[in-house]
Design a protein around this nucleic acid. Structure first.
Lengths: 200, 200
DNA sequence: ATACGATGCGGACCGGTGGTCCGGTTTCTT
DNA sequence: AAGAAACCGGACCACCGGTCCGCATCGTAT
């Protein structure tokens, strides 16, 4: 009822804009020197169209981000182990963190652009709340995190902080750490937090 | 030889500007709605003077931040235990993190302003490198982090990520977690990373 | 096929921000 | 006292995100 048929040119333009934005954020070094006019021009479209389709800059980036995030979200909410529900926490927590890390590595231009909007803290985004709740719930089933003392809550925040986009960018982009090496270091760290001592 | 005496009005104006900026960043809710013109006006000075004294916005905030950071830096480089050198790593690492956390809580307006400049990642700041190196070196003397595999390096990054300004702001400012509670949660987390199992 | 209303388009335009510039003033030196 | 170097200040600039509205385009009813 509420949704009338969208016009063809509208959906085509929306797609062009998303593609152009993806392109630009991936190619330019810093997210903040991709301007809205750039995106509109690259898509062969006027600025009015851009803002009509996505509201504002944050809306554009969020739309891109959520689109890329969808497969991972599905794998987590209704997929097979080790990501999906029904996985033992001691196995699921590292798997979740590893998945997030890989996502941030692969799409760090988008994640960086999202954080660089400045207008809102990353902690206000609703997808952060989802990841945090998921991780907290899993952690609280692990011995030592179960008490209602909030240790699981804080640990979830802290572990997610270890895969933040600008840190990943610093390690992978600036300092040249290889993907697999970073993954194994994160796995190591996670294991330590979970209380599984690693060999020297 | 190279430094001639600075003029009196210059040093007075510089001081006024720092005071005015501190005031404004502390009072206004969001750092980005403190404009450069605001600062200049609040200090009773022209914009030209502001930019002449600090170069650009980042320079202003950095100057403020470093000034507030100095006492802590001194305590770490040449102070008594548990912060100063010569403290056993297992004791010093938690002490360092707790000190950074307290600093971030007390000065989160400045830390947030610094991260919100957008122009540069927090990981490019030289004070980050100092904290990281300090923490890494301490960690690498702890059993399990000693190998040249970079586990100490990554753990230092991850632990510092757990005290980032916007996360602290989210917990203390938005979610209303009390200072002491947060400190104890961080201590708990740190202990876990260091391999000291806590009781259930 | 045609004509008409609704929907979307586009780029000129706006408010505001960080940063610059230069004529006039203040301070230091001799 | 007087000259020169250093500094002040606010008008000014470039640019960005976002708005607006006359006009083109599309979907539909005939």
């Amino acid at each position: 009822m509420t949704d009338r048929k969208p016009r063809k040119d509208a959906v085509r333009n929306r797609a062009s804009l998303l593609a152009a934005a993806e392109e630009l954020f991936a190619s330019r070094a810093r997210p903040e020197d991709v301007t809205m006019s750039d995106v509109a021009a690259a898509a062969g479209v006027g600025k009015g169209t851009l803002f009509r389709a996505f509201g504002d800059r944050t809306g554009l980036i969020r739309a891109l981000y959520e689109a890329r995030l969808e497969p991972l979200r599905d794998a987590v909410t209704a997929g097979p182990p080790p990501l999906g529900p029904g996985t033992p926490p001691l196995e699921r927590v590292p798997a979740l963190l590893d998945a997030v890390l890989c996502f941030k590595i692969d799409h760090r231009h988008l994640a960086l652009a999202l954080e660089a909007t400045g207008s809102d803290s990353p902690y206000d985004a609703d997808h952060y709340d989802r990841w945090h709740a998921l991780l907290r719930d899993a952690l609280e089933q692990v011995p030592g995190f179960g008490g209602g003392d909030g240790s699981g809550d804080f640990a979830a925040h802290a572990l997610l902080a270890a895969v933040r986009a600008d840190m990943v960018e610093h390690l992978v982009g600036a300092r040249g750490v290889e993907r697999e090496r970073l993954r194994s270091q994160l796995a190591d760290f996670t294991a330590r937090v979970l209380g599984q001592r690693s060999e020297a």
